[in-house]
Structure formats: structure tokens, C-alpha cells
Design a protein around this nucleic acid. Structure first.
Lengths: 219, 219
DNA sequence: TCCAATTTTAGTCAATTGTCAAAATTAGGG
DNA sequence: CCCTAATTTTGACAATTGACTAAAATTGGA
């Protein structure tokens, strides 16, 4: 059984430098993440990041050429971690396609109850509307998630044409993301997440199994 | 057949004053909305709102005591419009519960393809995490939407215990909101929204009809 | 010990923020 | 058409904040 926890950041070690430098780099990103989560994107200024990390403003500029680069690195570290987790679940050896689909649902919905995810992703959705880099990096993440879902759906219901599999993957992915707003960290329905997970698994699996090509024609 | 369009703002007329004043009030809110939609919450400053509405900064303070009050009024005008639309659909005379549920799904998903909704709501979700007023007013909206869903579910599947109806209403509502991120205005899947609507209607109706109390026990 | 890596100090410079008081203009009932 | 209340403009305050930089000081570790 997989552990269903997505690490906050996945940072690729930078070449050269001391261990202290590696720590500093990571520490800055964690501070920025913490600010975004606890105080929103308006709080994401170099001054506040420096204060939060107990460092000096000048030092941020030693690690990152600009504020934009810092944010890019942060986004990348968060998203890379998700991509890795998804891959692990999707390719779990010896598990049936249906079991892996259920595991993916569990992972995503579990993660949504996390403070980081509940707060961070809505910020990203908003930012993506006005920042091309964030928009593209988010699209990449969701594309990969859908490709994985697609494979599983294909294994479970091979009859379904590929374009309809895509719509179904989209529907499942979007449904899960939507729970963030209602059943995320400290949201009124957070306590009901286990029930939601059960319901989601049942609903999605049934949908994938029972769907026929004709079902997509509007009534 | 209802028209499935939610007006941008519903403004309760203020007592006294000239017609010009009423227009000015509404014009300011529209400008603020437009800024938020096109440039994000960071652009929501009194000066930019004044510029956008072709007015003077001082005049904003004549209509609104403070920036905070302006934002409250804006949020209220947007949300009130939704509440009215929901009520109309839910209580459409002569339509079966199933038809009204399908109409509600159509309304919400149709609205999601709107530029206003696609851009405004993610901003609100993010802001709600750090602004108690926005949080509360949003909760109110979603609570009312769920109460309505709940009634319809009860009519369609009376066997289902009330607490499980609530979870189901939550799941349906959240699923629809999640589509904002993927199939909203100018999103890559916007063109597939008609298919998504068909799929959502089928999936939700089937779920409501077929669900039994035992289904909520975890596997 | 010594050099490269990291951190601090101490700033620049420009731009912006919400709010307000008072004067100027306009609306529209009488 | 006049007069009062409603609306709009003017012009400013006072304070804060933004990203970024150069050079000096400190530290890591081979």
C-alpha cells in the first residue's frame, strides 16, 4: 500500500557549492511557500521572504537573479513533486488498473486536505490567469495527470474511443480539483473527506466501466 | 426553457439621490469587476478603479467609505445575482426534479465558460483564504446552492438518508466548480464543454438515482 | 591557510498606497 | 429659472513599499 503523501518540494541539487548553500536555497523556497500559503500572493515580496527565512534581502539576490526566477523555482519544485508521486502510483507494479485508479483518487483527495494544497492551488489558479509561465507550468502538470488517467481508463474500458476517454479523464480530474474549495484544510467539509473519497472512487469507477460511446450524444 | 445566463451584478437601488448617482455606483462596481477579471486582485487599487471608470480617486470615497467597503459591495452584487438565478431554476414550475437538476447543471457549467466566472471565482477562492468577509459570503452562496441540490436529490431518491444526500450534493457541486480550471473561458477544453455537460448530467443523475445507503461504507 | 561560497550592511531610487478637505460643478424639484 | 442637495474634481498628505545592488564581512572545507 502506498503512503499517499506528496512531499512539499522536490529540488534538484545544484552543482558545486557547499552544503550550506543547498540548505539556503531550499530554506528560501520553503519560506516563500509558507508565505504564499499563510498570507496569499500579495505577501510574496522579497522583503517578506527574507524576513520569513531569517535572511537578508541581499542574500535572496545571491540565490535568485530576480523575484520572477525565485517564483519559477518555487513552482517548479512543488509541481515536480506531484509529477513524481503520480508516476509512482500509476505504475505501481502488480496492481490492477482499477486498483491504481482508486489509488490515484485516494492520493489526490488525500492531498487536498493538506494546508499547502488547499491554500497554494487556488493561488496558482488565480495567478495562472495573468502569468504565462505559471499558466504553462500548471498546464503541464494537469496534462500529465490526464495522460495517466487516460491510460488507466483505456485499460479498464478498452471499448471507449480515445477522444471520449480524454473527456472522461478531464471530468474526473476536474471533479477532484473542485473538492479543494469545499473539503480542503479547515474547510467545513474536511471531516467528510473519507466519505467523499469512497463516493468518488465508486462514482468514477462505475462511470469508467459503464460508459458507452453513445452516451456522449446530447439528449 | 430557461435562458441560462447569470447577470454580472445585482444591485439593490440605494434610497434617495439622483439617477446619476445610481449609475455612478454601478459603473464603479463594473469597473472594479473588469479590473479583477482582466488583471487580477493585485490591480484592485482605488487609483486603477478610478482610472478604469473614468472617474477621480476622490469620487470613489464619496460612494464608498473605504476600499474594503467597495470590495464588499462588489462581492455582494455578484453573488446576489447567482442566488437569484439558482432560485429561479430550482423552483421552475411544472418541471420534474430530474429536469430541474439537469437544468441546474446546465446553468452552472454554462456560466463557467464565461470570462467573468472563469477569472473571478479563482480570485475569490484565493482571497477567501485570507479575508474573513469574502470567506463568509462565499460560504453563504455555496451553502444555498447545496441546499437546493439537496432538495432535488431528496425528490429523486427519497430513500437516501439526509446526511448522505448532503455529501452527494457536495460532491456534485464541487465537481462542477472544478471544471472552471480546465474548461472555462479560453481554457484548452472550453470547446468540449457541451460534451462535459452531457457527461455531467448523465453521471450525476445516475449517481443520484442509483446510490444506496450502503455505498458510503468504505471498501 | 587560503580561496571560493555565502551572508550582511546599507543603501538607491522610483513608484505607489488609502484617505481626506475643500472647492467646483451639476441635477432636477419647486 | 433658482436653489439646494447630490455629485465630481482638485490637489495634496504621509507613509510605505517595491525590486534591486555594490562592497565589505564572514564562513566552509580542501
Amino acid at each position: 500500500m502506498t503512503n499517499f503523501i506528496v512531499p512539499d518540494l522536490k529540488i534538484t541539487p545544484r552543482p558545486g557549492g557547499y552544503a550550506r548553500g543547498q540548505d539556503g536555497f531550499e530554506h528560501i523556497l520553503r519560506s516563500a511557500l509558507s508565505l504564499l500559503v499563510n498570507h496569499g500572493s500579495a505577501a510574496l515580496t522579497l522583503r517578506r521572504i527574507a524576513a520569513e527565512s531569517g535572511m537578508n534581502v541581499g542574500n535572496l539576490n545571491y540565490y535568485f537573479r530576480s523575484k520572477e526566477e525565485l517564483i519559477r523555482e518555487l513552482l517548479n519544485a512543488v509541481i515536480s513533486s506531484y509529477e513524481e508521486s503520480f508516476d509512482e502510483i500509476i505504475h505501481e507494479p502488480g496492481a490492477s488498473a482499477e486498483a491504481r485508479l482508486e489509488n490515484l483518487v485516494m492520493l489526490v483527495l488525500e492531498d487536498i486536505t493538506t494546508k499547502k494544497t488547499t491554500r497554494f492551488f487556488p493561488e496558482l489558479w488565480a495567478m495562472a490567469n495573468h502569468d504565462p509561465f505559471i499558466h504553462d507550468r500548471m498546464s503541464e502538470l494537469y496534462d500529465r495527470a490526464r495522460v495517466s488517467l487516460n491510460e488507466l481508463i483505456g485499460e479498464i474500458n478498452p471499448e471507449l474511443p480515445s477522444d471520449q476517454r480524454e473527456i472522461l479523464a478531464l471530468f474526473i480530474s476536474g471533479s477532484m480539483e473542485g473538492m479543494t474549495v469545499f473539503a480542503g484544510y479547515q474547510k467545513p467539509w474536511a471531516a467528510q473527506m473519507p466519505m467523499l473519497q469512497t463516493l468518488a472512487k465508486k462514482s468514477f469507477v462505475q462511470l469508467v466501466k459503464s460508459l458507452r460511446a453513445e452516451d456522449f450524444k446530447a439528449a
